[in-house]
Design a protein around this nucleic acid. Structure first.
Length: 200
DNA sequence: CGACCGATCGTCT
DNA sequence: GACGATCGGTCGA
């Protein structure tokens, strides 16, 4: 189990990082409550040139974190209900980010059940960005949190992902983004039951 | 199945 | 004042 360093997130190719995050382990330990899971679905958002990105309209109080250096969390509220967890990448002033859309639970499933109010674990526990946010205890107050801390980090546990295991598609829910809506910026592990959408 | 609807509130116009 | 990078439930075929 090796914690990913800041240099991993501060590289320039968001698509590449989005692919490499598949198979890595997301860990949160808020107030000592440990939850972890394998990342199985990601989406890249390419900053000011990407109409689907919040950063497209430039720097605002909300998007400020994305303009900082990579390796921090961008957590925002969606539909007034869902806490969406993103990883900021690239260097300062280039607001790239990666949305974690689905995870396969590993540790702390009891805690996830408590947070989500579900009675027993099923594939919906950590499927979709809203559910990931809830199960891992994310909140907009954690926006800007460093991704190499003891409370929040990404790790490599040696799990190997080959190119043929990765599927791509347009991103979900970004139809308003014009031509950018068609870009294949969504990446997922083919056949994994936690991946959102109908048939992967 | 697929279509639709309500929840719920911060953010930007 | 309108609108989401969503989810889960309901309704009808």
């Amino acid at each position: 189990m090796t914690k990913l360093a800041l240099s991993f997130f501060q590289r320039k190719d968001v698509e590449k990082i989005s692919r490499e995050l598949l198979g890595k382990v997301l860990v949160t330990r808020w107030n000592g409550e440990l939850t972890s899971g394998r990342i199985v679905e990601t989406e890249a958002y390419k900053g000011t040139q990407d109409r689907a990105s919040h950063a497209y309209r430039g720097r605002t109080p909300r998007t400020e974190v994305m303009f900082g250096p990579g390796g921090r969390a961008y957590v925002y509220l969606c539909y007034g209900i869902h806490q969406m967890f993103n990883i900021v990448t690239n260097e300062e002033d280039i607001p790239h980010a990666i949305l974690i859309r689905a995870v396969e639970p590993i540790e702390g499933i009891d805690i996830m059940l408590k947070r989500t109010g579900k009675k027993s674990p099923d594939y919906t526990l950590t499927r979709g960005p809203g559910n990931v946010g809830k199960a891992f205890g994310f909140h907009t107050s954690q926006c800007g949190h460093l991704l190499t801390s003891d409370e929040l980090f990404i790790a490599d546990d040696g799990f190997n992902i080959t190119k043929s295991m990765i599927g791509t598609s347009p991103r979900i829910g970004v139809d308003y983004a014009g031509e950018d809506a068609a870009l294949h910026y969504r990446f997922f592990i083919k056949g994994n039951p936690y991946v959102s959408g109908k048939k992967n």
